[in-house]
Amino acid sequence: MREVHAGYGATPILFGVSLDVRQGEAVALLGKNGMGKTTLMKTAIGFLKPWRGTIEFEGRDLTRLAPHDIARLGVGLVPENRRIFPGLTVRENLELGLSAAPRRSADLRERRLAAVFQHFPRLRERLDQSGKTLSGGEQQMLAIARVMMAGARLILMDEPTQGLAPAFIRHIRDMIRELKRLGVTVLLIEQNARVALSVCDRGYIMEKGVIVFEASSRELRESPVTREKLGV
């Protein structure tokens, strides 16, 4: 991401944000509420067109693509507040995730489902339940499982631990580690810096639409800047 400017209507939110996520890395984007983190995410997936600047993924320019095209290139989004389809069953939610896979086949579906169940055995138990009957943590699992179904190579996660019980937060953290082990690149947006820095390699701190600090997780954990900017 290079010098990205974006906003809603005439209101600018991002003032030239530049950040890099290298393949196989997990990167945290930290910052308080209202600093532009979610706007950045929306711009990356194509819901907002950047006013200026470029966004590239594996050498392809994403700035002019529609969200569904970006998803098909292998960018998955786990949105804020666990946005699953409440009226559909767990199985239907998962199968919808498959759309972004270039060649959809029954075989691929079974393989991906098997992989998902290996990580989330609980979803198998709930397979024919409707999404709205799941607990918050289970919905979050489903949202992550859905992008795994798509075979995304870069996953953008917006506040995945928000409002979850500690046990689920640990589970999500393990899940992100597991994704990394599988070679998936993760950009994690979090207010909970402790959780984010425990799984990510590097982190950026965002304030008022610009990146104000960038360092490795270790440095960020120890830096006074983190405390000052995030209040932790």
């Binding site: 997936i45 819901f47 529609a66 969200p67 569904h68 970006i70 998803a71 098909r72 998955g76 989004l77 949105p79 946005r83 699953i84 389809f85 919808l96 995730g97 759309s99 972004a100 859905r146 798509a150």
Partner: peptide, 8 residues
């Protein structure tokens, strides 16, 4: 929007 970012 959810359907869109899933690739539809």
């Amino acid at each position: 929007d959810r359907a869109r970012f899933l690739g539809y």
